[in-house]
Amino acid sequence: MFPRQFEYVAPASLDEALSALASTPGAKVMSGGQSLIPMMKLRLFSPGTVIDIGRIDGLADIVEKDDHISIGALVRHNQTASDPTVAAHAKALSQAAGWTGDHQVRNRGTTCGAMAHADVAADQPAAAIALGATMMARSSSGQREIAASDFFVDALTSALSEDEILVELRVPKASNGSRSAYDKLGRRGGHTDYAVAGIAAWVNVGDDGSVTDARIGVTGVGTRPTLAEAAAASLIGTDGGEESIRAAAGLVTDGITVIEDLYGSVEYKTHLAQVFTERALQQALAG
């Protein structure tokens, strides 16, 4: 309940934040603090310095660009969940943000923060992966792009280096035939709480109704949010009918090491991943 002592800095600009981060070993970046502060209270994690980026202007917006939607580092879950542009172009992310935490947590926690925290059972990372999003990582030496599918390295470990801040999430805009959906079983049942298994599905459907492209993001079952490549590949070229959905679902944990936890055995979580692959694909394909 009581964090260890730490230094607190609240820079007014991104440059200041980046230079503080570069010059302070062991510093931790905080946006909404909804994941970081509980860990600090439990003393599971005690950074020497906390760099609060919450006062930096210009990071709290969702902006529609030509080919993508830009979600700034300080965009809250509730903003992502209720934004009509996100809903129109990235339904899976919109749904995942709406099922993240509870109302108060969504008021304060940020979409980018949830990405950087890289919890194994978080919702929005699965959506980011499925949507082919790009993480914009900035350090004092410049900015680089990291594909969402490369961003989640391990439990609570992202591809950000110690001197980088995730400043923006870029989600490609939907074309005519592309749509997405996220579905999960929450730890409390229904959609509530972290995902026991969560699946984000993105598909592109051609004029003839066949699936021309697909990506499936998996969360909750393994050690990190992961792309289910074989499952997605199996869908491409099919009619997206019941059989092809079922076939894809059967492949969804290929290459994923499913982990048993309090919420399910390997067998059950594998099964759930398949069930929610079917459900998410059905919703996505139904438009």
């Binding site: 079983l185 049942g189 026991v196 919420y263 399910g264 055995s265 067998e267 059950y268 099964h271």
Partner: peptide, 11 residues
Amino acid sequence: LRPKRVWQAIH
């Protein structure tokens, strides 16, 4: 009766 137990019992 968490989902995992109910499913396992059915399964």
